[in-house]
Design a protein around this nucleic acid. Sequence first.
RNA 1: GGAGAGGUGGCCGAGCUGGUCUAAGGCAGCCGCCUGCUAAGCGGUUGUGGGGGUAAAACCUCACCCAGGGUUCGAAUCCCUGCCUCUCCGCCA
Length: 421
Amino acid sequence: MLDARFVRENIDIVKKSLENRNYILPLDECLTIEGKRRSLLRESEGLRNRRNVVTDEIAILKSKQQDASGLIEEMKGVSHRIKELDDKIKILEGNINDFLLNIPNIPHESVPVGKDEAENVEVRGWGAPRLFDFEPLNHWDIGEMLEIIDFERASKIAGARFSLTKGLGAKLERSLMNFMLDLNTSKGYKEVFPPIIVNRESMTGTGQLPKFEMELFRIADPEFYLIPTAEVPVTNIHRDEILSEKDLPIYYTAYTPCFRREAGSYGKDVRGLIRQHQFNKVELVKFVKPEDSYNELESLTKDAEDILQKLELPYRVVALCTGDLGFAASKTYDLEVWLPAQQKHREISSCSNFTDFQARRANIRFKREGKKGTEFVHTLNGSGLAIGRTLVAVLENYQQKDGSVIVPEVLRPYMGVEVIK
RNA sequence: GGAGAGGUGGCCGAGCUGGUCUAAGGCAGCCGCCUGCUAAGCGGUUGUGGGGGUAAAACCUCACCCAGGGUUCGAAUCCCUGCCUCUCCGCCA
């Protein structure tokens, strides 16, 4: 969410941002409502001031056994008027808030301007795609041949876009999870294991609600939501808190299952593990001081890249353009891993700086030493990494002609074997 | 699921027969004084958000005693609803 005062004082910046993101919102109308709200608020507060004064006078008169009926009559009218004004103000505030909640974050000046993902910019690459002396198979064929992934039974149990790993496949999933958590915690990220169903406030705090309800699994009664990413519970750890400057930066890493409706993606990636309703992911989350957040984005991205490098999987880093940038993000790097069967790079991590956008919604502030007042922290997060897609990348990149799969060096202590066959 | 207790300022804790509560008192923190010494004493000070004001401050003002409604001229205090915490019983991974 943007600050109402920021919007009214920087209307041109906000308009430019919306234009670059291909958004159309009636900003001027919102500003008119905001002006109206402030004038009503002033009237209401003036009357309250009057009432506070007169109420004390009434108390004094009564204690002296004197008549106060005139003042009481007057105050009846004043209180009535205050209530009228407050009702109007509340409606206007609701309108303004709904409006602000639907304004996306402002892209950083370094973000390339572009219409859609075709205009994203490759920043760097790492590793060379392996040369195969045979036709590489899709991961779902490898998985079924080795009997480590079972799509049919998963759809019997739950439905389409669910999967079941077993044997060394299940162990590979668990090994990836442990490897990533161990690596991340060795760099100072604190491991947390949060709730994976959350309330509406948490979803609103990180920006999933109210705009993206259709993408979430919801539990109706009582109302809860399944998290689409650990970003939600982990960022909300500090909702409505005032941190002290010396607490910052705070780094967390968390493994959680993630749940997504994938509404609107019918026909996309229908086979395999790429797009599932339920998948596992290890996430990196940071709370930092405003002046540090863009440097922290670079180091967070490097930390995610390091996982791919240690797994020796080729990838590239892409800076998202304004048209492809997520709602809450001011800047995002996607990591895309090379998948030989598809002959394509596919997203395996998305690292974003949300500046104060989530912090304002979730009310996460900090206090500087020796300074009055509070400021919003900046929040960042990135996958480190999506486990299902990493499993795909390992199977496809490490497959052998005989159908077996070599276990990456760094996973062998976790797997206990060198080859899956 | 049944029975009971409770949610007050950074923390502890009074107030809860409605009106100097602009919330006592204590602790902690900060500033100063005194005292020659890691102690004690004395005085002062301390939150958050909004509106106005200013070059920026100062300053003025409104709101905040879990949240949301209600009663009243006036609510921390009375009434209703919800959320959360704790204790006991039952059930359960």
